Amino acid sequence: MQIITDSSCDLPKSYIDKYNILIVPLNIEINEENYVDGVNLSHEEFFKKMAESPTLPKTSQPSPQSYLDAFKEGAKRAKQMLSIHLSSKLSGTYDGALATKKMTGDNVEVFDSLSGSLGVGLQVLKACQMVEEGLELNKIVERLKEYREQMKVYVYLETLENAVKGGRVSRTKEMVASILNLRFVVHVEEGYVKVLKTLRGKKRAVSFMLEKLTAEKDDFKDRIIGITHCDCLEDAIALKDEIMKRFNPTDVIITTMGPVIGTHAGHGGLLVCF
Rank of each mutant, 00 (worst) to 15 (best):
K13C: 13
E174W: 06
V131H: 08
P259W: 03
V185E: 04
V188N: 00
T263M: 07
Q61D: 00
C232W: 11
L56R: 03
S53W: 04
F46S: 01
K221T: 11
I30R: 07
N40S: 08
R223G: 06
K139F: 00
L271P: 05
D106W: 13
N181T: 02
G268L: 11
V195E: 15
S117Y: 05
G262V: 11
V176P: 05
T104P: 00
G258W: 03
E133Y: 00
V39A: 04
N107L: 12
K13F: 11
K79N: 12
V188A: 07
V186S: 15
K212L: 10
E158K: 15
K245T: 14
G262H: 08
N34G: 06
V124Q: 03
S117R: 02
I227P: 04
G191A: 06
L157G: 01
E211A: 11
K139S: 11
M50N: 02
P57V: 04
L11Y: 08
K152V: 02
V193Q: 09
M130K: 08
S63P: 10
D235K: 10
R171I: 14
V110T: 12
Y15D: 05
S60Q: 06
I140E: 00
S91N: 00
P57W: 00
T214Y: 10
Y147P: 01
F247R: 04
Q65I: 09
Y147H: 12
G116W: 01
P57A: 01
N27T: 10
L82E: 03
E234H: 14
A99R: 11
G74R: 03
I227Q: 05
L210G: 06
L86P: 02
R246Q: 15
D6L: 00
G201N: 12
N248R: 12
E242Y: 06
G226L: 03
Q129T: 09
K101T: 07
G226A: 05
I237R: 14
D95C: 13
K145C: 04
T172P: 09
H187L: 08
Y67V: 06
Q61H: 07
K145T: 10
I3P: 13
E190Q: 11
I237Q: 13
S87A: 04
K145Y: 09
K102A: 11
S7P: 14
V124F: 04
I84G: 01
E132Y: 10
C128K: 00
L22W: 03
E52H: 01
E136W: 08
S8F: 05
A70I: 06
M1H: 13
P249N: 08
S207M: 10
T198C: 12
N138G: 05
A97M: 05
E44T: 13
T214V: 08
C9M: 02
K152L: 01
N138R: 11
K102C: 02
Y192K: 15
Q80A: 10
S115C: 06
P25N: 06
H85V: 00
R171C: 06
C232Q: 14
E32P: 11
S207I: 02
A177G: 01
S83C: 14
K76R: 14
K101S: 07
Y94A: 02
S8P: 03
N27M: 12
A215I: 10
Y19P: 15
F71Y: 15
A215N: 14
D219I: 01
P25A: 03
L26V: 08
G74N: 05
E158Q: 15
L90G: 02
P62E: 04
I253N: 01
